[in-house]
Nucleic acid binder design. Structure first.
Lengths: 207, 207
DNA sequence: ACCTGAACACCGTTCAAGT
DNA sequence: ACCTGAACACCGTTCAAGT
């Protein structure tokens, strides 16, 4: 059970953060937290800012643009998944763009390396942002309520002719592939996605 | 200003729904709404169910699997965007899977038509679900707080050699393309994505 | 500068009591 | 069966008052 506001949001989400509960722990008065941080909204805003600031940078790994873009997408996914509640808080407060900034830098470089220029490169980077952030937001969904319709539907599409599809949702899903497959397809559609980079173009960690 | 609970959530989100406010409008007592719908949580649950039920079916248009899958993705995006708050409510309550059910049926058919079978088809359909739902959740972000870092960053990646990329976020973004581009790339990676379907396979609205 | 208690205006929910 | 008022346990916030 965390005592700090950050730990509270991290573990149980913004809904668990109350000014009164916060003050009750160290035994201070409710109103003092107001004096210090300026109220609940301001505190959540500060936590969102802290999350953005603490996200860190990215060092793409791999030789092709596809590998390198995927490594960034995976790293960002992992960091956001580690803190789903703060990540959603950042998103709700309109700070996603700034949170994505470190990743955007390296992705823009990869887009250039893959042959994209100008508005096309910008759109590619935006598409990756939507991919990763959307993926994390979707995955944050709480365990779906068990409902008979879930099983029935897969079977209905093709009862006998594809048994593997019919029982598809039975075994666990590799959610990381649900991000890497589309992002990979996105990169592979680029002009020079598969050419190896001979360490040119000034890549920092391209090895 | 909507008087109904559904209209309230549709326009201003779940946060705007209070049992007291709801009872105050027709002049009844606060406790009567409790008797009728069983409390605030139950009411939100019923609204989520209603949203799922009212989503409707899908008729893919176009000749190739790519066109047909994209038409479904666009249609689902449009319906969810029309009701961002109810859509988020559905997601928060773990009903996304059931909400996606009508789309899943037709997408599974398209996956089959494009040459996918079994677990691969199921993963394709799941990927499209993540795409569309994630896209809508990301786009629901409130207008980002204007911050100087936003402009600076694009320029920093390559100041002089790509002016179009540097000023990229200046003009408005076509967000629909941020969905259709990745989904299109995803479909085009399939075995028979570009072959026309000669109305075989029992498609209902294939022409 | 820092913290306090009292007070205000909200919540959701329960429950015994009415008709 | 349907609705009520009173009451309880929570909220966030303000503000004058203390030290």
């Amino acid at each position: 059970m965390p005592r700090t506001a950050a730990g509270l949001v991290r573990q149980h989400g913004p809904g668990a953060l109350t000014t009164r509960g916060l003050a009750a722990e160290p035994g201070t008065a409710v109103t003092s937290v107001h004096w210090h941080v300026g109220g609940r909204e301001a505190l959540l805003g500060a936590l969102a800012e802290r999350t953005v600031a603490g996200l860190g940078g990215f060092r793409p790994t791999g030789r092709t643009p596809e590998q390198r873009v995927l490594s960034v997408a995976r790293a960002l996914r992992r960091r956001l998944r580690d803190r789903p509640h703060p990540a959603a808080l950042v998103h709700e407060r309109g700070l996603t763009d700034r949170m994505f900034l470190p990743a955007r830098r390296v992705l823009a470089r990869e887009a250039h390396a893959a042959g994209l220029r100008g508005e096309r490169a910008a759109e590619f980077v935006r598409a990756v942002r939507f991919q990763v952030v959307g993926h994390v937001l979707v995955e944050r969904e709480r365990a779906p309520a068990r409902h008979p319709a879930g099983e029935e539907s897969w079977g209905a599409v093709s009862a006998g002719d594809d048994p593997a599809l019919a029982r598809a949702p039975a075994h666990p899903v590799d959610t990381e592939r649900l991000l890497t497959t589309p992002v990979g397809a996105l990169v592979r559609a680029l002009p020079a996605a598969r050419e190896e980079l001979p360490c040119a173009d000034g890549h920092p960690g391209s090895r």
